[in-house]
Design a protein around this nucleic acid. Structure first.
Length: 493
RNA sequence: GGCGCUAUCGUCUAGGGGUUAGGACGGAAGAUUCUCAAUCUUCAAACCCGGGUUCGAUUCCCGGUAGCGCUACCA
C-alpha cells in the first residue's frame, strides 16, 4: 500500500480468487477461479487465493473446507494464499489514512436504525447529513467518549462529478457520484467492510487484474473511489457474466440445492477436466468451433476478449427425477467425451475406488480388463456401478426370465440356445475369436440368427439385455462363471 | 423506486451493414455392429418489439419491453 503502483503495466499479472467462506464452493465461484487461473497461467502470472472472511457472523469452517475440497478436486494450484481476517491491521491503517485525508467520516447513527430514511420510496439514501457534516471536534469528542460509530466514505457531492473505469468485458463505465451513497468502510465493531478490506488487500497484494462476477460491477465505482482516495492506480477490471438457473435467477444453495455445489459434480462422477471444460464454455468462447478442450488447450487460448456479457443458464432440470437430469446435458456429454479420450489405464484407476466402495474385493487387474468394455458406455464415472456390476457380483440380481427369450423366438428357443451354449462353451477357449467362431457356428447348427443366439446368453450372464459386446464380456467373465450363470438361466425357463 | 448491465435456435454460442445467420448439446429420422453404447448421415429449431440512420439492418443509434445486478455497519 505504501507503493502506489500495481503490476498492470509492468509485466506479470497478479490475479486473485477471493471467496467468502459463507457456503460451499459453488459452480459460479469455481468458474471465477478457473478464469483467474487460466489468465494467470496464460500470462505467466501469479494466482492468489484469498479468503475474504471479514464477516465473522456468517463464516464457517465447514465452508472453508468445502472451498478447499472443491479446489483440490479441480486440481488447479495457486501460488500465494491469504486470509483477510489476519490482515485487519492493514485494513484499519487504510481506513485511518482515508479518514485523515478527510475523505471519510464517523457516523454515530446506530446500526439498522437508519432504515426509515433508507427505505423511503422517494429514492436512494445517500448519506445522513447530520453525520457527514459533524465537526471534527465533536466527532473526536464522541469517539473518545466511547460512542460506537461506523466509518463512511465521503463521496464527493460538489458538482456533477462522476467515477469511471474501463472494464475488459463491459467496456467504459461511468457513474455519477450523486448515485453513490456514502458507503461504510468500517463497521461500528471496528471490523472492515468488504469494500475496504478488498481494496486494501488488492492494493497491498499488488493485484493487477480483478476478474470477478458481474454482481460486483456496480460496486466497482466504490472501489475506484477507495483506490483513488489512497492514491493507488486501480487494477484492471474484468467482470464475468453470471451463471443463472433455468428460471433465470442467480444460482443459490437455498433455491437450487446441491446442483450448484462443486462437490456434487465430483461425487456424481464428473472428471475435473470435463467440469472445467464445461464451465469455461459458459460465458466464454474460443471463437472457433471447438467444444472439447483440455486444460492445455484452454490455457493456450484463454483471453479476456473471449468473455461475453450476457448471463448464462446452467441447464439443469429443477425438480430432477434422475441423477442425469440434475446436470446440464452438455456437461454430461462433455464428461463422456473426456472419458472416451482417457487412456484405459488412467480411466481404470479412476474407476477402481468407486467400484471398491461397493465391491471391496475388486482388483486392479480385473478393473483394467473391464474398463475397455465400458469406456464408451458410461457418461459419468459412477455409472460403472450400474454398467459393470455383473463383473463384480457373485450372484446376479434377479431378472425377468422373459428377458432370456430372443427376438422372434420363444422360451423353447431360449432353452435350446442356452443348452447348446453350455455344451459348446465348455469346450472352447475363452478368447474373443474362438468364442466368436464357435457361437456363430452353433447358431447355424440350430438354424437361428446369430442375434437370437447371443441374446439369451447375454441376459443369462449379465442379467439384462443391454450390455457390452458378448465375446469380450465372456472373455473377462471366464468360463466358470459363465457356465454357472447359463445353468441358472436354464433353470429359470 | 433509483442506478447499472444484458438481449441470436429449448440451452451454450459464432458472426456481423448485403450470409442459404455457422457450430455444439439436446430432440427427430436413418445407416452400421450380436444388444446397448460409440460412430456416420439427414432433418426440425433463433437474430425481443417499435422507431431512426442507410440503397439495404439481425448487426449502428434512440425508445420500449423483459431479465439480471447493485441500492446493508453481507460479500
Amino acid at each position: 500500500m505504501s507503493n502506489p503502483t500495481n503490476s498492470a503495466s509492468s509485466g506479470k499479472p497478479r490475479v486473485r480468487f477471493a471467496p467468502s467462506p459463507t457456503g460451499f464452493l459453488h459452480v459460479g465461484s469455481a468458474r471465477t477461479f478457473i478464469f483467474n487461473w487460466l489468465y494467470a497461467r496464460r500470462n505467466n502470472g501469479t494466482m492468489i487465493l484469498r479468503l475474504d472472511d471479514t464477516d465473522v457472523e456468517r463464516n464457517t469452517d465447514a465452508s472453508v473446507n468445502s472451498i478447499f475440497e472443491g479446489l483440490k478436486w479441480l486440481g488447479l494450484s495457486w501460488d500465494e494464499e491469504y486470509k483477510q481476517s489476519e490482515r485487519g491491521a492493514l485494513h484499519r491503517q487504510m481506513a485511518e489514512a482515508i479518514f485523515q485525508k478527510g475523505l471519510a467520516y464517523r457516523d454515530f447513527t446506530p446500526a439498522h436504525t437508519g432504515d426509515s430514511e433508507k427505505s423511503g420510496a422517494q429514492g436512494t439514501w445517500l448519506f445522513n447529513s447530520g453525520m457527514r457534516e459533524l465537526s471534527r471536534d465533536e466527532s473526536d469528542r464522541r469517539a473518545a467518549s466511547g460512542e460506537p460509530f461506523a466509518l463512511r466514505f465521503r463521496v464527493p457531492r460538489d458538482s456533477g462529478q462522476s467515477v469511471h473505469f474501463t472494464d475488459a468485458v463491459y467496456g467504459d463505465q461511468v457513474k455519477a457520484c450523486a448515485d453513490i451513497e456514502d458507503f461504510a468502510l468500517l463497521r461500528s465493531d471496528g471490523m472492515p467492510t468488504y469494500h475496504l478490506a478488498s481494496c486494501a488487500d488488492d492494493a497491498d497484494l499488488r493485484i493487477s487484474h480483478i476478474i470477478r462476477g458481474q454482481d460486483h460491477l456496480s460496486n466497482t465505482f466504490k472501489h475506484v473511489l477507495i483506490f483513488e482516495a489512497v492514491g493507488y492506480t486501480p487494477p484492471q477490471f474484468a467482470h464475468l457474466p453470471l451463471l443463472v438457473a433455468p428460471d433465470g435467477t442467480k444460482l443459490s444453495k437455498r433455491r437450487h440445492g446441491p446442483v450448484v455445489s462443486v462437490t456434487t459434480y465430483r461425487d456424481a462422477g464428473f472428471l475435473p477436466e470435463a467440469f472445467i471444460n464445461f464451465l469455461c464454455l459458459l460465458g466464454w468462447s474460443p471463437k472457433d468451433d471447438r467444444t472439447k478442450l483440455n486444460l492445455q488447450e484452454l490455457t493456450g487460448i484463454f483471453s479476456l476478449e473471449g468473455i461475453n456479457r450476457a448471463n448464462a443458464v446452467v441447464n439443469f432440470k429443477e425438480p430432477a427425477t434422475t441423477p442425469e437430469e440434475a446436470f446440464d446435458p452438455k456437461a454430461i456429454w462433455l464428461n463422456a467425451e473426456h472419458i472416451r479420450g482417457l487412456a484405459i489405464e488412467d480411466l481404470s484407476q479412476r474407476l477402481l475406488p468407486i467400484v471398491r466402495e461397493v465391491y471391496p474385493n475388486a482388483s486392479a487387474e480385473q478393473m483394467l480388463r473391464i474398463t475397455p468394455l465400458i469406456r464408451e458406455r458410461i457418461k459419468l464415472l459412477r455409472e460403472v456401478l450400474t454398467g459393470a456390476d455383473f463383473f463384480f457380483v457373485d450372484q446376479l440380481p434377479p431378472y425377468d426370465p422373459a428377458e432370456l427369450i430372443p427376438q422372434k423366438g420363444d422360451a423353447a428357443m431360449a432353452r435350446k440356445v442356452l443348452e447348446k451354449a453350455q455344451s459348446v462353451l465348455a469346450g472352447v477357449e475363452f478368447k474373443h475369436d474362438p468364442l466368436d467362431q464357435s457361437l456363430r457356428a452353433a447358431a447355424q447348427e440350430l438354424g437361428i440368427k446369430a442375434g437370437q443366439m447371443f441374446q439369451p446368453i447375454r441376459v443369462a450372464i449379465c442379467g439384462r439385455k443391454n450390455a457390452p459386446p458378448l465375446f469380450e464380456t465372456l472373455e473377462v467373465l471366464g468360463k466358470e462363471t459363465t457356465l454357472k450363470r447359463i445353468k441358472l438361466g436354464i433353470e429359470k425357463l
